[in-house]
Each structure stands twice: as structure tokens, then as C-alpha cells.
Write a protein that binds this DNA or RNA. Structure first.
Lengths: 246, 246
DNA sequence: AATAATATATGACAAATATCAGTAATCTAT
DNA sequence: ATAGATTACTGATATTTGTCATATATTATT
């Protein structure tokens, strides 16, 4: 009994942690919705999964056994092209979910997920998701709107990547990264990516990416210090990103 | 009474029409699920909406009042880039649905939908969709899997468009168009697109697209006759499309 | 702290793609 | 059937982007 009670509070703690404020998990956590068996399943060391920078959370083609709700850290989702390059599709961070598409569609993962920093996540086993998909309308609707949003973003990426020159896409990417992950006390972006990662977002050769960053630096639109990047001319970059040619 | 009865059979006819066999509408058509008011609403000339080749079904930014289930014909979904080019994101044909993302997310349309041929569709008003989203788990799940599939496709497009050269993307597009819409008795693809449309799928200049098609023609991989295109070397084109360089 | 390994940077050049100009073919509407 | 409009095609050239080589800086390892 005490055992179950402890477990209960532990799960409350995990779910209510401020890191997970927006986490989709809360949608079916009227915890009473979960039975003892499910609670046990989540608890046995499976609730929290931690990853170190560079760890592969799952790979293309993997059959996922559940979804990951990011509590702390950032993951990148990418797909290997036949030319050997890894196209980064999107980033996922605090309160966002990894792997839901594959679990919903009951298909192997289409993307690879890799930890950009050290990462903490809740793991929610597939069977709990599927059960809720059939019973919990609010939960399903939430997922639906989640995917609807992702789809819009993906469509936007298609347009940008195919129609805008590299420099504009890099400008846009920098703005987007700053908006998503914020800046530190010195004004540098929190997320630190290699030049290769940035080029894999933009869909260009690493050297081209570096060259454009150098240009932006010469034009005093950004400042760099190692991997760290600070945006100096936000408005100008934003215009550039929106396609107003430089 | 007879009036209602006629209406009933009309709707049965529309929904059960072989054109709509796979139509998502069937998921909430246990017609008894709809009340008289809903039936009336669907009937008043709104069930069937026809469009002529080139008609804009809805435009970017439009607030959709419902979704369109394609009974006959093909629509293209595209988005205008800041550079003035129209990127085609996908095609929608028999039994597939238009506008669901916007209705689900309750957001303005992100894409423009244009009829590629003369088109016939069922129009399902938004309120019926939203009602079913809250009550009809099977329907919601179906939509969810629909979006999950679209998302995967969109991610694949991102990788292809950013990493493969134009010629390969054109090869892939031709294969995809033939697979989606089939061929006539002479072996020409059913769907007839302008060179500009094809270039807007591939994300390239129209002239580049034409040049590549000419190359494919010289290499005897395809044959053309006006807008009509026939694939001659399916395997080779497919390999090309998969990224095996030529 | 020194060394190796890796990432970043830059130049020179090559390849891919876009743009512009002009012609030929096809479609559209009377 | 024909004139006008649109679309398809081709060549010449410009621009963008990629590749290769090499140097410098940064990070990791002992």
C-alpha cells in the first residue's frame, strides 16, 4: 500500500514538474484513468529516460515501443538522404513529444531522433497511448491538433527550402532557433549547433553554410564565438529570412 | 416525409458512390449519427460542389467553412513563396480530403487548393466535423492517421527537395504521378500538368524542368506528346528518383 | 600542457541551376 | 479556320551552390 502510494506521488511529481507544464501527457492524466498495471508499467524505471548529448533516441526504421515527452534538453529529428546527408526536419524540446507519429500510425519511425544536449524525458508506453486513443477523446483531439500544427510547419519548410536562397534560409533558421530556445545573459543563443547541423537544417553544403555565416558576420548582422552565435540585427535578419533579398 | 425520405436516399447515393469508396465521410456515416438539421444543411445544394479546371477551391488565409471530399477529379495544394513562385505541396484525388488540417486546427488555410481538372466533391460543413471530433472516436482516429500519413509524406518531400538534384526529383515526380493517377490505354499518364506545374512540384525554374524533361526524352526514358507524358523506362527512372546518380 | 582529433574557415574552381532572349508549338475563342 | 494568347522549347550567359584542397582554430585525450 505504502508502495503504491509512494509510486503515486512520484508519478504526480514527474508529471507535474514545471518542465512538463505543457506536456501532452497531462491530457490523459486524470491519473485515475490509469490502472495499477499501467502505473506499474510506467514506473519500473521506464518513466524517466535520460540521454546524453549525441545519443540516438531512436533510429529510422525502429519500431517504437512508446513516445517520449521531453522534460529537459533538446532533440533533433532528421532523416538520411540517399546522398548520405542528414536532413534535420525539426527540433523538439521541453514539453514537446517525440515519436507520436510512428506510434499513432503504427509504423516504423520515419526519422532518427538524436539528443542535442543531455536530455531527460518521460517515456509513455505505446499500449497506454493506443488505449487512450480509443477511449479518451480529449487526448486524441490534442494529438490531432499537435499533428495538424506539425503538418503546417512541414509544409512551410518545403516552400522555404525549395524557393529561398541559402543565405535567406540561414537567416530564417537563426531567427527560428533564437525564438525557440532563447538567449543567455550575454545574448548568445542557448542552442549550440555545429556548422554541419545548421547546414543540415538548411539543406546545403557545410562550407556554403560557413561562408554565409561569415558574410552575415562581416555585415555585422551576427557575432560568433566558437559555436556560439549572437544575433545583432534581428530585424534585418528577419527580413532576409522572409525573402526580401539582400 | 417523402421529402426527407428522398433526401435520405440521395445522400446514401452520394456517400456510397463508388467514387467515394475510401472517403473518410463514411466513418461518420452511420447516417443515423446525423440529425435532421445536419442532413438539411448538407442537402441544400451543399453536398456536392463542382469546380472547373483552374478554379480556386480555397485560398491561403481563407477561413474554411468545411472540408471537401473529392469524388471525381484532382486538386493541387500549393503555397505561394515570397519570391512569387507557387510551390505545389501535394495532390488530392478520389476519396481523399481537402481542408481537414485547417478545420481541425481551427486556423485559416495554409495552402491554396486549385482544381487540376473539372472536379466533383462532397462538402461537409465544419460544425459536423467538429461535433464528430468530440463524439466519434473512430472518426477522430481516422483523421489522426490521415494526418500522420501526410506528415510522413511531407517530411520525405523535405529530404528529397533539399538533397536531390533537379533531374532526380523530376524522375521521382513522374513515377509518383503515374503511381497516383495511373495511365490511359496508350500508356500516357492520366494526369496532365503544365511544365510550370511540374517545376512547381520539383521546386525549380520552369526552363530547367523543361530541359530535364528533354534530356529524359533524348535518353528514351520518357516520351511526350504535348502535355502528355509516357514513362518508357520505369526502372531506370525509379532508380534515378531514388538518388542513384545518372 | 602537448598532441591528436575534430570542427571551422577560406580560396580556387567545377557543377548545377536560374535568368534572359527569342523561336516554335499548342491552345482558345471567335 | 484563323488570329491572338499562352505554353513549350532552346541557346547563351549569369548566378548560385557544391567540391576539393588546405590552413587555422577548437576540443578532447593522455
Amino acid at each position: 500500500m505504502t508502495n503504491i502510494s509512494n509510486l503515486f506521488f512520484y508519478i504526480i511529481f514527474v508529471f507535474m514538474s514545471n518542465k512538463c507544464e505543457k506536456c501532452i501527457v497531462k491530457k490523459f492524466t486524470g491519473l485515475q484513468a490509469l490502472n495499477t498495471e499501467q502505473l506499474k508499467c510506467i514506473s519500473d524505471g521506464k518513466v524517466t529516460r535520460t540521454f546524453k548529448k549525441g545519443d540516438i533516441i531512436f533510429d529510422e526504421g525502429d519500431h517504437l515501443k512508446g513516445i517520449y515527452c521531453v522534460r529537459y534538453g533538446i532533440a533533433k529529428l532528421s532523416k538520411l538522404s540517399t546522398n548520405g546527408k542528414d536532413q534535420i526536419i525539426k527540433f523538439v524540446s521541453n514539453g514537446e513529444v517525440l515519436g507520436q507519429r510512428s506510434v499513432i500510425a503504427q509504423e516504423p519511425a520515419n526519422l532518427r531522433a538524436v539528443a542535442v544536449n543531455d536530455m531527460d524525458s518521460c517515456f509513455i508506453p505505446k499500449n497506454i497511448i493506443l488505449e487512450n486513443l480509443h477511449n479518451n477523446a480529449e487526448f486524441t483531439l490534442e494529438l490531432l491538433q499537435n499533428l495538424a500544427h506539425e503538418l503546417k510547419e512541414a509544409d512551410d519548410v518545403i516552400v522555404n527550402i525549395s524557393q529561398k536562397p541559402v543565405k535567406n534560409r540561414i537567416a530564417e533558421t537563426l531567427i527560428h532557433l533564437e525564438d525557440s530556445f532563447g538567449i543567455d545573459h550575454e545574448g548568445f543563443m542557448i542552442i549550440q549547433l555545429s556548422r554541419e547541423d545548421i547546414s543540415n537544417i538548411v539543406g546545403t553544403a557545410t562550407e556554403s553554410c560557413i561562408r554565409m555565416l561569415s558574410e552575415l558576420k562581416k555585415e555585422k548582422f551576427i557575432e560568433t564565438s566558437g559555436k556560439r552565435i549572437k544575433i545583432l540585427e534581428r530585424k534585418t535578419l528577419k527580413k532576409l529570412g522572409e525573402g526580401i533579398q539582400n
